[in-house]
Design a protein around this nucleic acid. Sequence first.
DNA 1: CTGTTAGCGCATTCAT
DNA 2: ATGAATGCGCTAACAG
Lengths: 342, 342
Amino acid sequence: MKKENITIYDIAKEASVSPATVSRVLTGSAKVRPQTMRKIVDVMEKYHFRPNSLARSLLYKQTKTIGFILPDINHPFFSTLVLKSEAHALKLGYTSFLCNTMNNAINESNYLQSLIEKQVDGIIYLGGRINDSVPDKQYAEKLKKVMERIPVVFVNGRMEGVDAHIVRADEETGIERLVELLVNLNHQKIGFLGGVEGITSTDVKKAAFIQLMEKKGLEVNSEWIFGNGFSIESGEEVAAQLLSLNERPTAVICANDLVAIGMIKVLTKFGLKVPDDISVVGFDDIYLAEHFPPGITTVSQNYEQLGQTAINVLVDLMNHKQIEKEIIVPTSLVLRDSCKLL
Amino acid sequence: MKKENITIYDIAKEASVSPATVSRVLTGSAKVRPQTMRKIVDVMEKYHFRPNSLARSLLYKQTKTIGFILPDINHPFFSTLVLKSEAHALKLGYTSFLCNTMNNAINESNYLQSLIEKQVDGIIYLGGRINDSVPDKQYAEKLKKVMERIPVVFVNGRMEGVDAHIVRADEETGIERLVELLVNLNHQKIGFLGGVEGITSTDVKKAAFIQLMEKKGLEVNSEWIFGNGFSIESGEEVAAQLLSLNERPTAVICANDLVAIGMIKVLTKFGLKVPDDISVVGFDDIYLAEHFPPGITTVSQNYEQLGQTAINVLVDLMNHKQIEKEIIVPTSLVLRDSCKLL
DNA sequence: CTGTTAGCGCATTCAT
DNA sequence: ATGAATGCGCTAACAG
């Protein structure tokens, strides 16, 4: 079957006008006599006519479309961020392509290619290779080429050698708040667990942690800094490791809430109570952090603001507005019940 | 700035060939002399040329694009299902539009409109108005019109008066397994909590529950059937209500895992232990069900199979293959530790 | 094997 | 206020 589309020509013929006039009522670009207008609108409704945005986009050279590149929509951090971003984009008239790379570099390249061919007006890069502290040279080059033609915004990431516009949550300050909180609760033996070495968000957090600890004259015990991953499962592993330590920290900061959840789960299983026996804090404030017992003290990414800012920057870029290279969105401490006075 | 795109004409000129020949190397639709081919490929690479898929789609009348309509990507059920579906769609060469309606009818209509204008090849309808047991007449009509031109697949939903292709998890059998499990554990006083009256998935489950209970000669106490929502919060409310009951069931089936989580959280807070004092089971097997203490016994939606099937049906529809109107994907019982022998 | 031409559906000149 | 003609970028005839 040939998909026989209804076009403005069909409408024009039936309404005994020219295609141009139909187009005028579609765009409102010029005055049309009310009488003709009515006739045209009637015919359009009769056939449930909708203009083909492909044709329009081909002409206008814009598609009102944004591509999101991210590792995994199933991770609450991303699903929340995408949700908020997409909602804001919709308000601004943009529809969103979703590209889950599953941390697969080939998927990532293919998706990038596909987005370009589909002529998206801009790309929001939420994660993937842009988070590698030591990025793939070739991919960086490709990304730079892309950015010459299409606006790209990195969220919570940066790629060495790629001078992209960045919108990021203030993870440093978030970590600092966490450290200060724990110190105020008399903790001195504090660990940092989970995350992945070489991924910017982990490196940033770890660096902020170490720096403030040292500044406060507290020991940074490298035995209390380990872990590999962002999932509940990796939190479970980390907890097991922690349990086997000779000397344990009295409090740990986890790379994110999922890791904290995994930790708490295993610690509890082995009879350690959180926060009575050990204080555990997370990061991200995924919606679960509130509900997972005992309620996890964490740092909120302020998803709505982060998402909206990213979209706003992207749209500004599309409109060739001058705009700062890096915008930092504040994070905020969320107090719950997973840490207590030592 | 005018977005000056590189086109096959530019490539053709620089390679001293005709646009048609460039097109041929792009599509592989006809033989090109290796020598000419090389020349063309070189020029294409030099300019990082990528064909404009809008032009191509305009011609082919297909965009290799699928639209997903769903309430909220932040809900783990949807995020998992979308993830699996999108991955499969990608394998088949399709890119996905994401449309979060936030249960807002206006958003839903707008998105539907937008998807049509963007000429998506098909629509996967994961939730929203298609789940209303008593659907909006006008919207149903609109949907029917859409379906005349674009394949649509409903997942876990149906809409009265709209004869759509449906792919759904076997929720009835899932509920039956749950009931049987609880009965085998000697429970007789069983409640069904959460969900929303008038939403098909809730109605289906509730009906299956009542039917099997009656068949087994067990009392269906209407005081043990209540709740309004699919969230953790609604689970919390439901738990509070449950606690105020004169006579309580010994086991409850929750409309989904989030409700179960909310319930368990509040019950625990009020000193009731799950499963010791009351058995609680969920539905969906979101990834949290495994990790939320004590580990929630539930029914898996088999996301991967469900998602793949939905995409396969949609693609078959796009290829005008004859295909069953309704495909039921099996669900499976997942045993964990939230219920025990009475 | 390669070039020329027409058309996908729409919006926009330029006329009238 | 309206119509005719043109082009957005690409591919599929149709020639040669």
